[in-house]
């Protein structure tokens, strides 16, 4: 690993090297397992984002169909959305630190960073659940109007992803605890980190399109 990386850093744009030998996307034979796994998961994430794009499109089409019910402007509390954004952004940052800790093989920092990731993620979920609960108890649940159906599905689908991510996070902590930083576990950690960062990217789209544009546009 170190040797490879050193090379890559010395000549990041590979000037003076032919592309014919490139592993994986040239003719140099099968790529390493880490690259294969990371790339496969990357493609999965892209497919996940395409799925979200279908939900985004539906939300945009149905956003004005409030059927006499409340619109986003009346419902949304931007302070809550801002807090959720902060939680998720910090959680993504903490997840990055966990990746570094794992790459540096520091179990202690890895646990600390993963715990921070988890707590911040749970904080995000708590805020989102309380928002949903408030809407439902006010009679503005997903069955109220097409707009609310689309809202609950789009935001809720992201929330489900975060929940699944937390389950995965706990599993990864248990795996490192039981098996250490083994190569296959490091590959899964890479995938988990990608997943967690991708969720934050989707959230950027969500708070912009749903909350900010819902209130101001």
């Amino acid at each position: 690993m170190t040797e490879t990386v050193a090379l890559a850093h010395n000549d990041p744009y590979a000037l003076g090297h032919g592309h014919g030998l490139a592993v994986g996307h040239g003719g140099g034979g099968p790529a390493s397992k880490r690259i294969i796994v990371g790339y496969g998961f990357w493609i999965f994430l892209l497919s996940d984002i395409v799925m979200f794009s279908a939900l985004f499109a539906t939300y945009a089409v149905l956003v004005e169909r409030t059927a006499g019910g409340p619109s986003g402007r009346e419902l949304f509390d931007l302070r809550g959305a801002a807090a959720e954004t902060a939680f998720l952004l910090l959680s993504s940052f903490a997840c990055g630190l966990a990746s570094i800790a794992a790459a540096a093989r520091s179990a202690r920092w890895y646990y600390i960073a993963m715990a921070a990731t988890c707590v911040l993620g749970l904080g995000f979920l708590a805020l989102e659940i309380s928002e949903f609960a408030r809407f439902v108890s006010d009679g503005d649940g997903p069955t109220r109007s097409a707009f609310l159906s689309a809202f609950f599905t789009l935001v809720g689908c992201h929330g489900l992803h975060v929940s699944a991510g937390i389950l995965w996070l706990l599993t990864m902590v248990a795996q490192v605890f039981a098996k250490g930083f083994r190569a296959d576990i490091m590959r899964r950690l890479l995938c988990f980190a990608l997943f967690w960062h991708a969720l934050d990217i989707i959230w950027v789209g969500l708070f912009t399109v749903v909350y900010l544009m819902g209130v101001y546009v």
Partner: peptide, 17 residues
């Protein structure tokens, strides 16, 4: 979701499309 939980994505009522 429409069928199981009464959402209104594609229904005739409540603004579905």
């Amino acid at each position: 979701l429409d069928r199981y939980l009464g959402f209104h994505f594609f229904t005739n009522e409540a603004g579905g499309n």
